[in-house]
Design a protein around this nucleic acid. Structure first.
Length: 258
DNA sequence: ATGGCCGAGATCCTCGGA
């Protein structure tokens, strides 16, 4: 089973790119972030036409997350984390896979820039709350996959020029520590687990020729709980969608389960 | 050496993104 996470930077602006991707990749479950629309304007029919059901937690203009899935997702919840600004950043659901129940947690973490504003505090508070919610969720189900746009560069290897990001909300030590705290609850950053030395990115800014220069960041991640680590067959950053016309600034990360 | 963009929702600019 193939599970993909992709920040699409508007589901409506990106609909043909997303449909192309589904056709080519045959992904079973697509976890979307930054859909930038409410449920009322979500393209349910377009996905239904190609065999996918949509589970949507939308918001007007900003944020918004969704599952696009060929398989049934149970217990879909949009109140896993309710932040102080009531933003649509987390949707969770359970899948049955080979007699295991796996909880999928699809997240869009706040950006947090600039760091001298309340946006940065919002990100810190958000991550604290998220870690707490995951800690509680692990008590009920030890099979958890967290996927999404974390807006966190875990290590120096995950950015083209780390010195430029030392005072950026994506790479500040304080933020990376929150990511480590989350991992220490019992997860692996599955991309880095399989690729100890590889330098690949999931995001390239639209500006400054970042894509042709490969000035990227690895900020989209899959965290897999220890209990199901042996069920993971492969993980891949698929750069193809970033090279298309009218692309998202992020590209999909794909997780293959045994 | 620097900087270059894009989407939504409202106008012809602002906000947010990273």
């Amino acid at each position: 089973m193939l599970i993909t996470s992709w920040n699409v930077n508007s589901v409506r602006a990106r609909i043909s790119n997303i449909l192309d991707y589904l056709k080519k990749s045959k992904t079973d479950i697509l976890m979307l972030q930054e859909i930038k629309t409410e449920e009322i304007n979500f393209p349910f029919a377009e996905f239904k036409k190609v065999g996918y059901n949509s589970y949507v937690f939308g918001q007007k203009s900003y944020n918004g997350v969704a599952f696009i899935s060929k398989v049934k997702i149970d217990e879909v919840k949009t109140d896993f984390l309710v932040d102080e600004r009531k933003q649509s950043r987390v949707i969770v659901g359970d899948i049955q896979y080979k007699k295991n129940s796996i909880k999928l947690v699809n997240i869009y973490v706040p950006n947090g820039n600039p760091i001298d504003t309340d946006k940065y505090d919002f990100k810190k508070n958000w991550l604290n709350l998220f870690n707490l919610k995951i800690k509680k969720a692990l008590i009920k189900n030890k099979n958890i996959i967290i996927g999404g746009d974390f807006n966190i560069i875990p290590e120096k290897i995950d950015v083209h020029d780390y010195k430029k990001y030392e005072n950026d909300a994506l790479f500040k030590l304080e933020i990376r520590k929150k990511f480590l705290e989350l991992i220490n609850l019992g997860f692996h950053d599955i991309y880095r687990y399989y690729n100890k030395e590889k330098q690949e990115y999931t995001f390239w800014d639209y500006t400054s020729g970042a894509w042709p220069k490969n000035n990227g960041l690895r900020i989209d991640h899959f965290l897999v709980s220890n209990n199901i680590l042996d069920k993971i067959k492969n993980v891949n950053i698929n750069k193809n969608p970033r090279s298309k016309v009218k692309p998202s600034d992020h590209t999909p990360i794909e997780l293959l389960i045994n």
